Simulated assay, not measured.
Amino acid sequence: MDDVILQTHRLTKTFRGFTAVQGVDLSVRRGSIHALIGPNGAGKTTCFNLLTKFLAPSAGRIEFKGEDITGLRPAQIARLGIIRSFQISAVFPHLTPLENVRLGLQRALGTSMHFWRSETSLRQLDGRARELLDEVGLAELADAETASLPYGRKRALEIATTLAMEPELMLLDEPTQGMGREDVDRVTALIKKVSAGRTVLMVEHNMKVVSTIADRITVLQRGAVLAEGSYAEVSTNPQVMEAYMGTTDTALQAEGH
């Protein structure tokens, strides 16, 4: 299956007798936007933590481009090109957007931990950093203080910093969480734009976002896969509607539009 970039086999995580993720089989196709959804407590973020090795699986296997990566450490996972964002915006507030993106670009120079290097030595990265900021709509704010940016723009900056690390697979954890409608629409369009030529796996609670950009959706409930398919398929699945709404009516479909 050459078109599958990430695959899990019976992925499981147990905490002191509680099974948070149970036998998850997941296949993410290269070049797609794949959404992982489910009610609160379904195991979505735990799955992300397993994929990036912030947690070690209790059982199961993870494969990236056909290679078993289950035993690797988080830094090794990142070096392979699996780059993750987090629910809470993870940028340096007292640096400028340009400086934030430049830190991500340092990985390509092999100086990512050399924070004592003079700023002059890093200016060779400014051109590419500004290109990435332009890609996410932040070119005019490149030299502002990041702390002063609206929340939605900080999330856009986080995506630019993620792109700076040249991911083959971007893992976006709740990218629109806490945003107003205008920011949600902007970040949704941004994810669609930057996904061109890349693969995105995202945890997302906003069904409008999922219905707009996801090519394929995996629904988790109590740590296990409940359903998988296109938005049209999962949104009309009675089990999925009941898991979300406690009903089998069309509420889930309405939420997505």
Score class of each variant (00 low, 15 high):
Ile5His: 12
Leu6Pro: 01
Leu6Val: 00
Leu11Lys: 03
Phe18Ala: 09
Thr19Tyr: 07
Asp25Ser: 07
Asp25Lys: 10
Gly31Leu: 07
Ile37Thr: 02
Asn40His: 03
Gly41Glu: 07
Ala42Pro: 03
Thr45Met: 14
Thr45Glu: 15
Phe48Ser: 15
Phe54Tyr: 12
Ala56His: 06
Ala56Ile: 08
Glu63Ile: 01
Gly66Gln: 04
Ile69Phe: 14
Gly71Val: 06
Gly71Pro: 07
Pro74His: 08
Gln76His: 15
Gly81His: 03
Pro93Leu: 09
His94Glu: 10
Leu95Arg: 00
Leu103Phe: 11
Ser112Leu: 13
Phe115Asn: 00
Trp116Val: 10
Arg123Pro: 10
Gly127Tyr: 07
Leu133Trp: 05
Ala139Cys: 11
Ala142Val: 12
Ala144Cys: 12
Ala144Ile: 07
Ser148Trp: 08
Pro150Val: 04
Tyr151Phe: 04
Arg153Gly: 01
Lys154Thr: 01
Ala156Ser: 12
Glu158Ser: 14
Ile159Val: 10
Ala160Val: 06
Ala160Tyr: 00
Thr162Pro: 01
Thr162Arg: 01
Leu163Thr: 11
Met165Val: 02
Met170Glu: 00
Val184His: 01
Asp185Ala: 14
Asp185Phe: 00
Arg186Asp: 12
Thr188Leu: 00
Leu190Tyr: 09
Ser195Cys: 09
Gly197Ser: 06
Val203Ile: 14
Ile213Thr: 05
Ile213Asn: 01
Arg216Leu: 14
Ala227Phe: 00
Ala227Met: 00
Met241Cys: 15
Ala243Trp: 06
Glu255Trp: 15
